[in-house]
């Protein structure tokens, strides 16, 4: 990329060595973290662990109910965030006729993306649990997470929609297609890659979340009986075992390994999809 220099001077090599050292530290650090987690986690990891019920506060037994609760929270989160986020993106890209309104909404979404997760937790606790009367429940947790991943879904869908060829819209109008048909038959197919990538990134963010769930979906370790029941997500389970349950470290390590593997897979999938479909225009999963 930098032209010319056929031979590197001493300074050039020094800077390269410094940068290379930084890169090496990152690689070794990443390797060490993953290796440590594998080493501590594989001991307790087994099929019975994945499906068994939580016993003795998490020291014994498995994480079956925790995985079910996590799945249910995720389901609520996606069921709300996907239609809402996609709808918002389509409106911003196709319907917003007044630039002022579009700007205000975009600013709101940007602010939403910057809110720390613990604040989402407090907000969910007072708004969903108390004001809307949903209590400490899987629904409250899922709705709180939905607020959190909305900006991701909206941004990626917008990027997907911006990939539509610019002559698509006047072409459709010239054929006398209504806007609804234009969106359904022409724009949505174009936007679907963006929605899929956004969904994948959103799932990974939601799965990784702990602080927003402690005060909304609660700590219950029983098999969840419904969406109005309290249930702990796997990240909360890891936190609780590591911090509040003496002797829970082994099962915490196994749960952490399960979560880590799931997320590495989902994030890899997201990068792959983004690279292939969105021409590398999506920001990396930095959150």
């Amino acid at each position: 990329m930098i032209g010319g220099a056929a031979r590197l001077s001493r300074n050039d090599r020094l800077l390269g060595a410094a940068g290379g050292f930084a890169a090496l530290v990152v690689l070794v650090g990443f390797g060490a973290i993953v290796f440590d987690l594998f080493q501590t986690g594989t001991a307790s990891l087994s099929i019975p662990f994945l499906v068994g019920k939580v016993e003795n506060g998490g020291r014994a037994g498995g994480i079956g109910p925790v995985l079910i609760s996590t799945g249910m929270i995720l389901l609520v989160c996606l069921a709300v965030a996907l239609p809402l986020g996609t709808g918002c993106a389509i409106w911003l890209s196709e319907f917003a006729s007044k630039i002022r309104f579009a700007r205000a909404i975009t600013a709101g979404i940007d602010l939403l993306a910057s809110v720390p997760s613990i604040v989402f937790g407090l907000f969910g606790m007072v708004f969903f649990c108390r004001t809307l009367g949903l209590g400490f429940s899987i629904t409250s947790g899922g709705l709180t997470l939905a607020c959190m991943i909305l900006p991701i879904v909206i941004r990626t869908t917008l990027i997907g929609l911006s990939g539509a060829p610019s002559n698509l819209r006047p072409g459709a109008a010239a054929l006398g297609l209504s806007r609804v048909s234009t969106i359904r038959h022409l724009l949505l197919p174009v936007a679907i890659p963006g929605v899929v990538v956004g969904t994948t990134l959103g799932i990974s963010r939601a799965l990784a979340e702990t602080a927003a769930l402690i005060f909304t979906s609660g700590y219950a370790t029983r098999w969840p009986e419904g969406f109005d029941d309290s249930g702990r997500a796997i990240s909360v389970h890891i936190y609780d075992l590591a911090m509040n349950v003496p002797g829970g470290a082994a099962n915490a390590a196994a749960s952490a390994l399960v979560l880590l593997l799931a997320l590495l897979f989902i994030n890899y999938l997201a990068t792959l999809l983004a690279d292939r479909w969105l021409l590398k225009r999506i920001a990396p999963t930095s959150e």
Binding site: A23, V26, L27, F30, I33, D36, L37, T40, S204, L207, A208, E209, T210, S235, I238, Y239, A242, A249, A252, A253, A256, L259, L260, L263, L264, I266, N267, Y268, T271, P284, T285, S286, E287
Partner: peptide, 24 residues
């Protein structure tokens, strides 16, 4: 390769890094 590793590192959930910090 380096970009992929950085992206994977960015995807490790905070509770897992915290757990690593606590036990290692």
């Amino acid at each position: 390769f380096l970009r992929r590793v950085l992206e994977l590192l960015a995807g490790i959930p905070s509770v897992v890094i915290g757990f690593w910090g606590l036990v290692v």
